[in-house]
Amino acid sequence: MSPSRQTRKVTLRDVAERAGVSISTASLVFSGRGPVAAATAGRVHAAAAELAYAGPDPLASSLRQGRAGTVAVIVEDRLLHAFRDPFALAVLDGLAQELDDMGTSMLLVADHGDSQPNPLAAHAIDAAIFPLCGRTVSPLVDHLLARRIPMVGAGAPVHDEVVHVVIDERGASATVTQHLVDLGHSALAHVLMPIGRHRATHRMDEAELEHAAYPDARDRGLGFLEVAGPGSPLVEAEFPDVAQGEVAGRILLDAPARRRPTGIVAQSDLLAAGVIRAAEGLGLRVPQDVSVTGFDGVDLPWLDRRLTTVEQPGEAKGRLLGSLTRRALAGEAPDDAPFEVRLRIGDTTAPPA
């Protein structure tokens, strides 16, 4: 390498000249977005290695295209909770596949919903996606609106400028509750995901549902009450996981038989698995002594049961979120997209003894 070459930054032109190809061909090799013969691509990569060329400058590329090439994926609270939830992982996986197909990277952001420094302020992004259960209001929406960044969500935050993948949460919850009623159950109880108070798992009053910070938990609760009837026991979980589902299950089931529900509708499969653990720990049989239902339809290979649940395919939901994002970035104004769910009958429900 000549002294003059060593004193300046190596460019794509240098690589193309060394490989004996045009700049456009070398560019296609690095982007992976065009048909280039394997032998030609090999020469380009070999030339890049000889010149210690790391690839095109992504900042320069984004400036030329007027795009950052990055989409913010905003998850409520700590990312830890999302990565422990198989449904959340399935949604993120489907979304990541769609963004990969677009050649767009994913910036994971935790939204704590408080007055902390804005986690998006220092990042260049093309769009923002709220892919999981979230609060009705997010302080990030006003910031994103001011930057004219398109937003896509899965039911929250609720704002006219956020395009959503929409599930009939209330109707789905009513359907799975009706399944228990049709089996003959009349003593029903409900285990809710957090509604926004972040306190220990506890019995709650149904009036609190109207003020829930999370619209999905609220609507699933209202769907349950629509069928089970007012006054049916409600327990709010501190976190939507197995451990808190077990706590909730003990609150409802550790009681004399005459005061114990014969059917429990849980707002997620993880909560339902926790309720089953609680029942078995108390010496109760599922479904002979108590029927349990979930919501999501995730694979729980460690649970020796096939849950009766509401199936909403997480990967497909993530892909639909990505598709809406693609359309928004193309300059379209997509409408909310309905997402179908269905009742799946498993072996955790049966007529009451």
Rank of each mutant, 00 (worst) to 15 (best):
H143N: 00
H143F: 15
H143P: 01
H143D: 11
H143Y: 15
L144A: 00
L145Y: 11
L145G: 10
A146L: 13
R147Y: 00
R147S: 13
R148M: 00
R148L: 10
R148K: 13
R148N: 14
R148H: 14
R148V: 03
I149Q: 07
P150R: 02
P150F: 10
P150K: 04
M151R: 05
M151I: 14
M151L: 15
V152S: 12
G153C: 05
G153T: 09
G153E: 02
G153Y: 04
G153V: 04
A154G: 12
A154P: 01
A154N: 14
A154L: 11
G155D: 06
A156L: 01
A156M: 04
A156C: 09
A156H: 03
P157M: 11
P157Y: 11
P157C: 10
V158T: 09
V158F: 05
H159G: 08
H159I: 14
D160R: 12
E161T: 15
E161S: 15
E161F: 12
V162N: 00
V162M: 02
V162C: 00
V163M: 08
V163G: 00
V163A: 10
H164I: 04
H164M: 03
H164K: 07
H164L: 08
H164A: 05
H164C: 04
V165I: 12
V165L: 07
V165E: 01
V165S: 02
V165N: 00
V166F: 06
V166W: 05
V166K: 06
I167S: 04
I167R: 09
D168V: 02
D168H: 10
D168F: 05
D168M: 03
E169Q: 15
E169C: 04
E169H: 13
E169I: 05
R170W: 13
R170I: 05
R170L: 15
G171A: 12
G171D: 04
A172Q: 09
A172W: 00
A172V: 00
A172N: 06
A172H: 03
S173G: 15
S173P: 08
S173K: 05
A174F: 10
A174G: 08
A174I: 06
A174C: 09
T175H: 07
T175I: 09
T175P: 03
T175L: 14
T175S: 14
V176W: 01
V176D: 01
V176P: 01
T177L: 05
T177N: 06
T177W: 07
Q178G: 10
Q178N: 13
H179I: 03
L180P: 01
L180K: 02
V181H: 08
D182T: 12
D182P: 02
D182W: 11
D182G: 09
L183D: 07
L183S: 09
L183F: 13
G184F: 06
G184K: 13
H185Q: 14
H185L: 12
S186F: 06
S186I: 12
S186L: 13
S186A: 15
A187M: 09
A187K: 07
A187I: 01
L188Y: 03
A189Q: 06
A189S: 12
A189L: 06
H190Q: 14
H190V: 02
H190F: 13
H190W: 12
V191M: 11
V191D: 04
V191A: 08
L192C: 03
L192Y: 05
L192A: 11
L192H: 03
M193Y: 00
M193P: 03
M193V: 12
P194F: 00
I195Y: 02
